[in-house]
């Protein structure tokens, strides 16, 4: 354990030392596996949806360079005035207390920077919020402390299942502690998936970092979000709103497969989950 951490530490420190601020958080490839968090990672995960890629671009290309510049600019100014105007070097203070042009400049330049940020920001926002025509709709319900999924009948579904954390004792090689589950939710790749999200008890939040998706599951309310996964794979998410003692123990796993495999899975899942007892169990647990 200690060795691993030391190695990661050295690697992280080395990497941090050689990257310049603009790229510090950007495209930082450190044994990244798509869909799961990177050990010792410094930046955003690799994104696999249009919205996720938009977020990544917005953060890495617009926000991160601007805020790094501002931080270094202010730091530079502080260091300079501390050096230039300390009492040894500058024993007689000036009486300068006003400079209207300067005050106008430092009001207007931030306004311009903010306007510059707001253009891509609002464009991305609209893309996130406006759900395009979806070919698959799934309903996700938060429970204390697991997620339930329902696939609608008219899209070849008509079944539902619960997704529970795999206990540590049952982990197989390749499984991830606190992230792997018993029943993965499967969706087709390269298709728009609309997700309807609600909760049976308290507030939860459905979040998958590599999709750029985070949406609250609120009782009495049906929220909607969407993603279009552009790469086959297994994607992990977690609950993003405190929901009681096992808040950290209700992960999300979405597997993206080709349309053909998805159809096969639908057929199997229908058999597996359509049996009455799983429905009864869902009903019983939600009251």
């Amino acid at each position: 354990m200690f060795n691993v951490n030391r190695r990661m530490l050295t690697r992280g420190a080395l990497a941090a030392a050689v990257t310049i601020p603009a790229t510090l958080f950007a495209g930082f490839a450190l044994a990244q596996v798509e869909g799961q968090p990177t050990p010792g990672g410094l930046g955003l995960p690799n994104m696999v949806t249009p919205v996720g890629l938009g977020t990544q671009q917005f953060y890495n290309m617009v926000l991160m360079p601007i805020i790094s510049f501002i931080a270094l600019f202010v730091l530079g100014l502080l260091v300079y005035v501390s050096y230039r105007f300390n009492e040894q070097r500058n024993p007689i203070p000036s009486k300068l207390t006003h400079n209207t042009p300067l005050e106008i400049v430092w009001t207007l330049i931030p306004v311009l920077i903010l306007l510059f940020i707001s253009v891509p920001s609002l464009r991305l926002l609209a893309e996130q919020v406006e759900v395009p025509e979806a070919s698959v709709t799934i309903k996700v319900t938060g429970n204390q402390w697991y997620w339930s999924y329902k696939y609608p009948e008219d899209q070849g579904g008509g079944f539902g299942f619960d997704q529970m954390l795999k206990p540590e004792s049952e982990l197989q090689p390749g499984d991830l502690r606190l992230l792997s589950v018993d029943n993965e939710a499967v969706v087709p790749v390269n298709e728009v998936i609309a997700v309807h999200i609600t909760s049976n008890d308290v507030i939860h939040a459905f979040g998958v970092p590599s999709f750029g998706v985070r949406m609250d599951a609120i009782p009495g309310r049906l929220n909607q979000t969407w993603f279009k996964i552009e790469k086959e794979g297994v994607y992990y998410g977690q609950c993003f709103f405190i929901c009681g003692k096992d808040h950290a123990y209700m992960p999300i796993v979405i597997r993206a497969v080709s349309r053909e495999k998805y159809n096969e899975w639908l057929a199997q899942a229908k058999q597996k989950f359509a049996s009455a007892d799983s429905r009864v169990r869902v009903a019983a647990e939600s009251h």
């Binding site: 968090p37 930046g43 955003l44 606190l178 992230l179 970092p209 977690q238 993003f240 405190i242 950290a248």
Partner: peptide, 13 residues
């Protein structure tokens, strides 16, 4: 990296 807050335990990454 995507770590949620208010977690007593977190993935090993």
């Amino acid at each position: 990296g995507g770590m949620p807050r208010r977690y007593i335990d977190y993935p090993d990454a």
